[in-house]
Amino acid sequence: MTKREKLAEFARQEARRHLGAAALLALCSGTYTLVGWLAGAPLPALAYGGLLCLCAALAVLGWDARCAWQRCCELERLAANLPASIAELPPPTGAEQAAQQELLRRLAAQNAALESENAAGRRQMTDYYTLWAHQIKTPIAAMQLLLQTDGGENAPELAAELFKIEQYVELVLQYLRSQDMAGDLAVGRAELEPLVKGAVRKYAKLFILKKIDLVLGPLDGTALTDEKWLAFCLEQLLSNALKYTPGGGKVSIELAPGPRKILVIRDTGCGIAAEDLPRVMERGFTGYNGRENKKSTGIGLYLCKKVLANLGHRFWLESAPGKGTAAMIDLTEARLGVE
């Protein structure tokens, strides 16, 4: 809205606000003129007195409108620079405005108390789940050791399922850590090839168990990123590719040709329905595939999008039902000019 439009809207609102006062002024002026005329006062004197009253009224209304305009400008400035405290509000000019500011103070105090209570609850929940995730790693490690020593006919399948449990526990920890990523970032140069191969090595057993082919394309170069968080995202995307790709399928990882440094993780899985594609990165959204196979948590892609956005990497998916999915991470470094 332009300044002229704002002034026009302000004038309309002020006119509505002073409509009662204008009607009262007109009534008083009419009464004054009628009484004076009936008393035999000369009309020029009556007109002169009415003009003086009108000028005085317009002066008072003009001053009031000027103060109201300054107050509106100050409130608009505060609204554009939130958060603002109640103490920064312009002083009230009447009983109604004083009552409104008092109501705002009480609402702000109530909101602060609720936020403090919610923050304490979130801290307790974070502490509990962090402790749980660390404690659950002990029995997982014990079961892995038992599987390695005792073996058995179903040992590979059991080891694969145990690995999935371990990854879900790690997902919980990373979800908790992502709430405050700023304190856990270490940005630097990361070699892409060893980073990708490290993530692939972690899922090697699942590739072998499901007989899924892995194709690694050219991965030369580096990325300016946080190596740990980018590796976490790669692992999540590999986990999704393995989850939704049937046995005998294929997963490929490569840098797309072109001037931009785009890392592509492509699978030959079931793909994503067109109506689900815009929402698959929303927290808790599982879509048709998740409801059909009951495998999706609705957290993995949401975390990837959040983490990669914090790292400054654009992330998107290309998919179609029956044609697999391609997860794209743009690792191109932004060029910053000097002014």
Rank of each mutant, 00 (worst) to 15 (best):
L195T: 04
E117A: 10
V169A: 13
M125F: 11
G121M: 14
E193H: 05
A109Q: 09
H134Q: 14
L147S: 01
V196D: 13
S116K: 09
E161Q: 08
Q135G: 08
Y175R: 14
M143S: 02
E191A: 10
N154V: 14
G152A: 06
A112W: 08
G198A: 04
K197V: 08
Q144D: 05
E170G: 04
E170F: 00
P156N: 00
G121K: 10
A199M: 02
L162M: 03
E191K: 01
A155L: 07
L195M: 06
A112C: 04
M181P: 08
S116G: 14
A186S: 14
P139Y: 00
L131K: 07
Q110Y: 15
N118H: 13
N118K: 09
I165S: 04
S116Y: 03
E117H: 06
M143L: 05
Y175N: 11
E117S: 12
Y129E: 02
Q110K: 15
G151Q: 05
G188N: 11
S178M: 05
L192H: 07
L145P: 00
A119I: 10
E170L: 02
T149R: 10
L171Q: 08
L107D: 01
T130M: 12
R201E: 12
E170V: 00
R123S: 09
E166T: 04
A182D: 14
L146Y: 02
R123F: 09
E166S: 09
R123T: 13
L176Y: 02
G198I: 03
V200Q: 04
L114Q: 08
I136N: 09
L145M: 03
